[in-house]
Amino acid sequence: MAAPGRPKQKARSGAKDVAQLAGVSTATVSRVLNNSQQVDPETRRRVLEASAKLRYVPHGAARSLRSHRSKMVGAIVPSFDYALYARTTSALHQRLDEQGYALVLAEHHYDLAAETRIASQLVEHGVDAFVLVGLDHEQALFTLLEDYGRPYVLTWGVDPAQRHPSIGFDNQAATYQAGRHLIELGHRRIGLLSAPVAGNDRARARGEGLRLALAEHGLVLDPAHVAHAPISLAAAQAAMESLLQLPEPPTAVVATNDVFAVGAMLACRKAGIDVPGRMSITGVDNTDLGATQTPGLTSVATPVTQLGRAAAEQLVARLEGATWDAFQLYPVELVCRGSTAPPPV
């Protein structure tokens, strides 16, 4: 796709428009939006409602507005606690830096309303373009970025409807491969360790990948064999312990990332359950954390660093009027190690 330059911006509402709609002065608008306490609650309410209706974002970076270029790119990720997002943003930063751009980082903790609010703040400070994670976002976020002519790209997934530029891989295919591998080994009772799915399309897709693999073999995922937890070793270990305490636990578990998988291995070790003799475990992302376990973790390799570099290259091309590819889908690959084997007789 060729971009003739920076996306055409719609005429923006100004402080005067907000003041007129709210029936106040521009000075009052300024006081409200700067959180001054010298405004009565009713006036504050009218100003905020008018601002929201007009989608007004005050711009503090005047020089950036005049030049239409700050050479800053904002990346809003779900959480800095997840190491894989750090790897993507590190690759993003390195590629942007090589091309003379700076990276601004923020996190929204899987709160999509917070993501929209943060993006508005970054627009106010003149950020040129945005890198977002996943496919789940508020429509208000897309409206904001389009209204202010800010290019954006979704990462860690590719929009199946091709509504939004995106660079990623098939999250469903990752756990489909892991599930099919376990079924081919002979497992029929397969569990799932996953992050919560609210606001997290990656977790939903990875759960669906396992369900699809099971369905193709006439099997179903028992709801009792599904455990959700925050992404941490301790939470993953506790979730796996809950599965091990079932009257009829699974003989294998698909974890939706390597953190969950290693937490599951820790739970088995604590309970004296041999991996893979009595329990097979797979992960996703093929990290050093899993590869260096004993036994080594069977996991699905995902292109997390490639995503960061590709996102940087796409946005810089769009900002500078070069040719760019709106949709890039990278492959995933199952890496078999010692954590999987046929089920016990």
Rank of each mutant, 00 (worst) to 15 (best):
Q9K: 15
R12C: 00
G14A: 05
K16M: 10
L21S: 09
T26H: 08
V29N: 00
R31G: 03
Q37I: 13
A50R: 06
L54P: 07
A61W: 04
F80M: 15
D81C: 04
L84E: 11
L92G: 08
V104I: 12
E107N: 14
D111Q: 12
R117A: 15
V123C: 05
V123P: 01
L132F: 03
H137P: 06
E138K: 00
E138R: 00
Q139A: 15
L141S: 00
E146F: 00
G149D: 11
G149M: 10
L154H: 09
W156Q: 12
A161I: 10
H164S: 10
S166I: 06
N171R: 05
A178V: 07
L185M: 14
H187R: 02
L192R: 05
L192Q: 03
A198V: 13
R202L: 08
G207E: 08
E208Q: 10
L210I: 06
A213Q: 03
L214F: 08
H217E: 01
P223L: 09
P223E: 11
A227C: 05
A234N: 00
L244A: 06
L246K: 05
P250D: 04
T251A: 08
V254I: 06
K270S: 11
G283W: 05
D285H: 12
D288F: 09
G296F: 06
G296H: 04
V304A: 15
L307F: 05
R318V: 13
L319C: 01
Q328F: 08
G338D: 01
